[in-house]
């Protein structure tokens, strides 16, 4: 019985560690995708400025409050504007940004095929 107890505790600690590690990983992932607003071209993760440090705290608080990654992004977007997100969201402002390169790729392929491989 006692053995079982210890076993349970070990499992619990082990899992707790895993959860904690997961949280840190998500926190880092989120911080890497955010612009440090007061720095020159650095992410929140890479910066040691006060802004970045406080933002890292905010992120870890939000994670422990149970917010998902997406929710945190949209929370920060509301607070600081889209400028903070390194991964621009797909909306009517960014259709061009996301779709144009793909369109160029398709059109380029089409031109090559038409010009060189379809016999007239």
């Amino acid at each position: 019985m006692r053995l079982l107890h210890i076993f349970f505790i070990i499992v619990l600690i082990f899992n707790f560690n895993l959860i904690k590690a997961d949280e840190i990983e998500t926190e880092n992932k989120i911080a890497k995708n955010l612009r440090c607003l007061i720095c020159q071209g650095q992410s929140v993760y890479d910066s040691d400025s006060e802004f970045a440090l406080s933002l890292k705290l905010v992120i870890s608080n939000k994670i422990s409050e149970g917010m998902t990654e997406e929710q945190i992004y949209s929370f920060l977007k509301k607070k600081y504007g889209e400028w903070i997100l390194y991964d621009p969201v797909l909306n009517k402002n960014t259709y061009f940004l996301w779709l144009m390169p793909l369109l160029i790729f398709l059109v380029g392929g089409a031109i090559i095929i038409k010009k060189f491989y379809i016999r007239k």
Binding site: E82, I84, D87, P101, L102
Partner: peptide
């Protein structure tokens, strides 16, 4: 054009 500031960073380039 719209005075919207967006950032285009590593995730964008990685995805595309």
């Amino acid at each position: 054009l719209t005075s919207n500031k967006i950032s285009v960073g590593p995730p964008f380039y990685n995805k595309l």
